[in-house]
Design a protein around this nucleic acid. Structure first.
Length: 615
DNA sequence: ATACATACC
DNA sequence: TACTGGTATGTAT
C-alpha cells in the first residue's frame, strides 16, 4: 500500500482520499519505484519487530529505572523553558505556484502545478482539491486531474519573490533566519517591545505587507519558540495565522493533542515506529518516556521529550564567524531521463559503433557488447559533467573540500554512496573528476538512473579583515543560488529595499546577478593540465588500504579532459546488461558532534531506532 | 572515515 | 512510459 501522497496537508480537506489512494496505487503498482517503496516498508516493519522484541525484554524494574531517569531529564528540560520570546514562522502559500499565478493570473482559476510529468514541486489550491500535491510525480497528478496545467519551474522568479519577502522580514527581525525560499523564522520580541505590539499584530502586518508589496499570501505562526511558531504556521493555511500563547498550561494542552507527525523532525518512519508503541500524539511521548528510552537513543529522547513539552529554539543560532564556511557540503545531482539518451550521446554512440565495427568484423563481436560499453561510458561522461558543475559552484563560493561522495541510484531505486577523503583540499574540475571516476569505476557494472557528487569537509577560509569577497558582501542572500536550506541573515537593507520597491524589475534583472566575478575558462575547457593534487600521491600515502579495488584502477589521463571526452575515455568491460536510464543522486554522509541535550540552537532531524549492541 | 537512512522544502 | 534536487543530521560500523 502506497501511503506517500495521501498525507493530510493544507488544501486536502474534502479530497476523496480513497479515490486518490486507488489512483496512486494503480499507477504505481508495477513500477520499480513501487517495488523499492515496498522494500523500504519491509525494512521499517523489521525495525519495528526488533523494537517490539526489545521492548518485551524490558523488565518492570528496568522500566521503572528508565522512567525515573526520563523524569529527571524532563525536570531538567523544564528548567530551560523560556517564555519571554515571541517567534514568528512565515510560510508562503503554495509558493512556486503562486509566483506563476502572479505572472499569469489566468492560472488562478485552473488546476495548476509547477513541475513536469516526472515530478511536481507545488500545486495550487485548485489542483489540491483533486489530490494533487507536492512531491507527486506529474503523470499520477495528471491521472487525478486530466485538466491539470503544468508550469515550468522558473527559479529566478521564486528567488526574486523570496527576496522581496525577506525585505519585509528584515524590518521586524534583522537577523531572521530563512529556512528556505518560502519560509522564515523571526524573533520579533524586540520589535514587539519597542512598538507595544503583540506577535499577532506583527503577523497581521506582515501578511498585509506581503499581499500589498509582494502580491502573495502567506501563513504565519506565532509562539514562544521556533517549534511552536512553526507548527502554528501550518494550522490556518492558506492565508491565515495562529497563535500559541506564551502560557504554560495552554502550551501543554496544545502540544499534548498535537499529532507527532506535525513535529518537524518526525517523518514517516518515526511516525510508524512510535505508533507501534501507541504514540500518535505528543502526549504519548511523555506518557511512554520510560519505554521509549529503552528503544531510542539519548539524542532521540532529548528531542522527543523537548517536543512533548513544547520546547524549542528560543534564540537564533550563532552567526557564521568571519572566515568560517557556513555550509557543510555542496552537491550536484541529476536524473538522466530520455533526454540524456538521445542527441549528443547517441551521436557519440554512433562514433564508437563505427570504431568497433572493424573489431566486430575481425572477431565476430555482437552489437550488444558495443551497446553496453557505450552505456558505461555514458556514466563517465555524466560524472565528468557533474564534476564540472560542482567545481563551478565551489568556485563561486571559494570552497575547497576534502571529501567527495559519489551517489548512485540504481534502476531499482536503491541508493549507493561511495566516498573518498583526499589528503589535501581540492577544488578543480580535474581533481574532482579524477576522484569521481575512480569511485564510479569501482562500481561497474551497474545500472543506474541517477548520479550525484557531493563535496564536504571544507577548508576554512581565513580572509584578512576587509577581504570578504565582493559578491558575498553585496548580496549575502543571493550567494548560495536558488537552493533551499541555507540560512543567511539579510544585512544589506539598502540594496534589498530597492529590490522590493521594484519587484518586477528585480525579477527581470535577476539572471544577471548569478554571474559575477570569476572569469570562466574559455569554452568551458578543462582546467589547466596540471593538477595541484595528485590522487596517486594519496594512494601512496594511504597505502594501508590497497585492497580497495577502485584504488587499483588506472588514473585517468589529463587528456581525458579534452572534449570530446566520450571517445577518449577508457572504457572497462561490462559483464551484464545495463538497462534503463542513467542518473545521478547524491547524499550527505557526515557527522558533526553536537552537545546532546541542548535543545535550543539545535536543529534536529531524523530519528532512528536505537538498538544497543547485543550483550 | 564510510555507508546508509531519515527528514525538510 | 513516467517518481526531483540540495542540505543537514542520526545510526552503525
Amino acid at each position: 500500500m502506497n501511503t506517500v501522497f495521501t498525507n493530510a496537508k493544507a488544501g486536502m480537506a474534502g479530497v476523496d482520499k480513497e479515490h486518490v489512494q486507488k489512483v496512486v496505487y494503480e499507477m504505481s503498482k508495477n513500477s520499480p519505484h513501487f517495488k523499492n517503496e515496498q522494500r523500504k516498508q519491509k525494512q521499517t516493519d523489521e525495525r519495528i519487530a526488533k523494537m517490539k522484541q526489545r521492548a518485551h525484554g524490558i523488565s518492570q524494574t528496568d522500566l521503572a529505572g528508565l522512567t525515573r531517569s526520563m523524569d529527571a531529564k524532563v525536570a531538567h528540560l523544564e528548567t530551560t523553558r523560556d517564555l519571554s520570546r515571541t517567534w514568528l514562522t512565515v510560510d508562503m502559500d503554495a509558493f512556486f505556484a503562486a509566483c506563476e499565478e502572479l505572472d499569469n493570473p489566468a492560472l488562478k482559476t485552473q488546476p495548476m502545478a509547477v513541475g513536469g510529468i516526472g515530478m511536481i514541486s507545488t500545486a495550487n489550491y485548485v489542483a489540491r482539491k483533486y489530490g494533487v500535491r507536492s512531491a507527486m510525480p506529474g503523470f499520477i497528478a495528471r491521472e487525478l486531474c486530466p485538466q491539470l496545467v503544468f508550469a515550468k519551474p522558473n527559479f529566478s522568479k521564486y528567488t526574486a519573490a523570496s527576496r522581496a519577502s525577506r525585505v519585509i522580514f528584515a524590518d521586524y527581525d534583522a537577523e531572521f533566519s530563512a529556512g528556505s525560499l518560502d519560509e522564515a523564522h523571526l524573533d520579533v520580541t524586540d520589535y514587539c517591545n519597542q512598538h507595544g505590539l503583540s506577535g499577532a499584530d506583527v503577523a497581521e502586518t506582515i501578511r498585509r505587507r506581503m499581499r500589498e508589496e509582494v502580491k502573495l499570501t502567506c501563513s504565519v505562526g506565532v509562539g514562544p519558540n521556533r517549534l511552536l511558531s512553526k507548527v502554528a504556521a501550518d494550522m490556518n493555511k492558506p492565508d491565515g495565522q495562529y497563535v500559541v500563547a506564551a502560557d504554560l498550561p495552554g502550551i501543554k494542552r496544545f502540544v499534548a493533542a498535537l499529532p507527532i507527525r506535525k513535529v518537524p523532525g518526525i517523518g514517516k518512519v518515526a511516525e510508524q515506529t512510535l505508533a507501534a508503541f501507541g504514540v500518535t500524539a505528543c502526549q504519548g511521548l511523555l506518557d511512554h518516556k520510560g519505554l521509549l528510552a529503552g528503544l531510542y537513543s539519548p539524542i532521540s529522547m532529548d528531542f522527543f521529550l523537548a517536543s512533548g513539552l513544547g520546547l524549542g529554539q528560543t534564540q537564533h543560532s550563532e552567526p557564521v564567524a568571519d572566515g568560517e564556511v557556513g555550509r557543510k557540503g555542496i552537491s550536484c545531482e541529476r536524473t538522466f531521463g530520455p533526454i540524456s539518451k538521445t542527441g549528443e550521446l547517441e551521436a557519440k554512440a554512433c562514433e564508437l559503433a563505427e570504431k568497433l565495427a572493424e573489431e566486430m568484423a575481425a572477431e565476430g563481436l555482437k552489437g550488444k557488447t558495443c551497446t553496453l560499453k557505450l552505456k558505461e561510458t555514458t556514466f563517465e561522461v555524466q560524472a565528468c559533467e557533474l564534476a564540472e558543475k560542482l567545481a563551478e559552484e565551489m568556485a563561486d563560493e571559494g570552497l575547497k573540500g576534502k571529501t567527495l561522495t559519489l551517489k548512485l541510484k540504481e534502476t531499482t531505486f536503491e541508493l549507493r554512496t561511495r566516498a573518498h577523503t583526499s589528503s589535501q583540499f581540492i577544488s578543480s574540475v580535474a581533481d574532482i573528476r579524477n576522484v569521481a571516476l575512480r569511485l564510479l569505476r569501482a562500481e561497474m557494472p551497474i545500472a543506474i538512473r541517477l548520479m550525484g557528487l557531493r563535496m564536504s569537509s571544507f577548508q576554512e577560509i581565513r580572509t584578512l579583515p576587509g577581504q570578504r569577497s565582493l559578491s558575498a558582501f553585496i548580496q549575502p542572500a543571493a550567494a548560495g543560488s536558488a537552493t533551499a536550506g541555507t540560512e543567511q541573515p539579510l544585512k544589506q537593507q539598502g540594496a534589498a529595499q530597492d529590490f522590493s520597491i521594484a519587484f518586477q524589475h528585480a525579477v527581470d534583472a535577476l539572471p544577471d546577478e548569478s554571474e559575477d566575478e570569476e572569469p570562466e575558462d574559455a569554452n568551458g575547457a578543462p582546467e589547466p593540465h596540471q593538477s595541484s593534487y595528485s590522487m596517486a600521491d594519496d594512494l601512496q600515502a594511504q597505502s594501508g588500504r590497497s585492497e580497495d579495488k577502485w584504488r587499483e584502477a588506472p588514473l585517468p589521463q589529463q587528456s581525458d579532459l579534452a572534449a570530446p571526452r566520450i571517445a577518449e575515455l577508457p572504457s572497462t568491460d561490462l559483464q551484464q546488461s545495463c538497462t534503463g536510464s542513467v542518473g545521478f543522486g547524491q547524499f550527505a554522509a557526515q557527522k558533526r558532534k553536537r552537545p546532546s541535550g541542548a535543545v535550543t540552537g539545535h536543529k534536529r532531524t531524523g530519528i532512528e531506532a536505537y538498538l544497543r549492541p547485543a550483550a
